[in-house]
Design a protein around this nucleic acid. Structure first.
Lengths: 346, 346
DNA sequence: CCTGTCGATGTAAGCGATTACATGGACACG
DNA sequence: CGTGTCCATGTAATCGCTTACATCGACAGG
């Protein structure tokens, strides 16, 4: 159907024979590189254009035996604001160099992660940006240590540069903020330590407690996979306590959504009956009323840093050694909005 | 730094010489295809594994001269719930076949779209899923007509299968719903006709008006690029009218966010002072209170259909001709929630 | 006029896989 | 024992491109 014709792609050899020159000359003309009589070069380029010639990247990469044709982008999810905005920014920045982004989704499954990594290596990606899944398998580590890698969002113990959000501080601040308002029983619903930067958040939490002079018993913790349903479940568990917390901190992807809706549907109003701090991308909370006090990260910044680091790494691998690879931290910030206040009087 | 060693990737030739067999035998053993003494095959595979051999996809593709190594995924944005969920689903489904997704972002710029399409062709993608940008350039059409293509979200006039959301009906329903509640002045803030399926929405709007027995003057229209800021601006324009609308329909990506926040901040409450219908992915509106009456599409379904169509297309191009390629429509549905009601009395 | 230099072009060897065809040994059958 | 069959394996061409090296003609200096 339609006008789809079987197109045999044309090659340098075709162009060469059509113009009665050698393949070398065609290649040179097309790459503008070496010495070709300008007029001939022009003619070749025009002819190529006219015949709709598109160089085969595979062949090119194969021949060059090193190329920046592709980089891999390995993340647990993409349909979550944080990851998708990072993906968008990276794709944008890399494409400026003519590098294409191969997107793979691990869903935090180490086996899939390994499988996909293998395929990326098979595709001879120039490097990759990865937000490692829960548990890194040994062969995965092996593969990673042989590639220019930029970690992001979560480290996995290989010596590689990375870009992380520094949640610890903001988390501690959140606890202090709540404590200052008078809360002494706080609930935390977050992702497991192994996931994302769950452990940084927990550290922040503990530090906040200590600084606020509260004991460990002041906090109830639920750690669950970041899904909306778990958000619901987690909040229900936390609030089902004999002496339920008067403030909640909820972090991680879709957890906040489920949590906020559940609280709302249960008829509790924030900040009067329950204080709430959420963690995540602002776009998810844009419509809540009153706006939620939240901890949030500049994901665009994060993505840009990741892309830049990868570029540096690629350059340095090619001998230029641009700037020293490093671990960078983008700070998370606590925005006070309307969802936190003093605990209910009674 | 670290233990990154310069790894010269090993090839079939290396394996072959290490094992004192020919490259052909190695290749055959690894592909499990033809006749190799089982015990030899086993030995070869083990050795390959042990040496960490990973076949070079480029070389393979070059040699086979046709491959499913890559498909392109060309969309205007990915950091928007609709597109990101479709991207996620497609990546998931294609990776089951060992096909990798090359993600490119056009930002609705025809030039960039063309550029990226060229690069995808250069990468010899097996096919692509595309949500075309505003205006399709002629060379773009050329390129597309020589590839297995599945359009999605928006058609661009090439004879290709596609998956679309059928907004017209839901849009008409929304108008009828508002009219039935007694509204006679309705505002519509949406994307330009050329964008996304903006024109289908406008058709639905007009049809709704006709069916409701309302004249064209019953509606005020603002068409803007889908950004949060434009959402704010558009609503302000619409409400600045001498006789402002009593109900708004807002559609398209980030428009709804900006619109909803602006309305809310202006102190107007829905549904009492203003009725509101939004169009878009539910996750954006999960926290609004009361929940918004909305038109929404099952994006997961959309994505799955797109992926399946592409697979069929690839199969049929290889001679199997599975099922007839076709245009599919996923219906958008109107969910009544709390943000629509009768117009204010006065 | 001879020769060295240089710039433009051609020739051919890879890159790493697949695969058509060639080869060679085992076995069976007459 | 000779020969045809078949299975396992090797040899080498091929995919499309880049690039080191060879070639060749023009031109300058002696």
């Amino acid at each position: 159907m339609g006008t789809r014709g079987k197109v045999t792609k044309i090659s340098v050899a075709d162009l060469a024979s059509e113009l009665d020159v050698s393949t070398a000359t065609v290649s040179r003309a097309l790459n503008g590189s070496a010495s070709v009589r300008p007029e001939l070069a022009q003619r070749i380029r025009e002819h190529a254009e006219e015949r709709g010639y598109v160089a085969n990247r595979m062949a090119r990469a194969l021949s060059a035996n090193v190329s920046r044709a592709f980089v891999g982008f390995v993340i647990p999810y993409v349909d979550t604001p944080a990851y998708s905005s990072v993906a968008a920014e990276c794709a944008r920045l890399m494409s400026a160099d003519g590098t294409q982004l191969i997107l793979t989704i691990t869903e935090n499954d180490p086996e899939r992660e390994l499988q996909q990594l293998k395929e990326l290596v098979a595709s001879r990606v120039a490097g990759l940006v990865i937000s490692p899944s829960t548990h890194i398998l040994e062969p995965t580590k092996q593969l990673l240590s042989n590639l220019p890698v930029v970690e992001f969002h979560r480290a996995c113990g290989i010596a590689a540069p990375g870009v992380f959000s520094e949640d610890e501080q903001a988390m501690a601040e959140a606890v202090l903020h709540l404590a200052a308002l008078g809360h002494t029983r706080i609930g935390y619903l977050g992702t497991p330590e192994a996931l994302s930067n769950g452990s940084a958040r927990l550290r922040g939490l503990r530090r906040g407690l200590k600084l606020a002079g509260l004991g460990k018993s002041a906090i109830a913790v639920q750690l669950l996979e970041p899904t909306t349903d778990n958000g619901r479940r987690g909040v229900e568990e936390l609030l089902a306590d004999r002496r339920p917390p008067t403030a909640l901190i909820v972090g991680g992807g879709a957890l906040s959504i489920g949590a906020a809706r559940t609280i709302h549907e249960s008829g509790r109003r924030w900040p009067d009956e329950l204080s709430l701090v959420v963690y995540g991308h602002p776009s998810w909370f844009a419509l809540s009323d009153p706006p939620l006090t939240r901890i949030t990260v500049n994901y665009r910044d994060l993505a840009q840093r990741a892309a830049v680091q990868l570029k540096n790494l690629l350059d340095s691998n090619l001998g230029a050694r641009a700037t020293e690879p490093q671990q960078q931290f983008v700070t998370a910030e606590l925005y006070l909005a309307g969802s936190t206040g003093p605990p209910p009087a009674h």
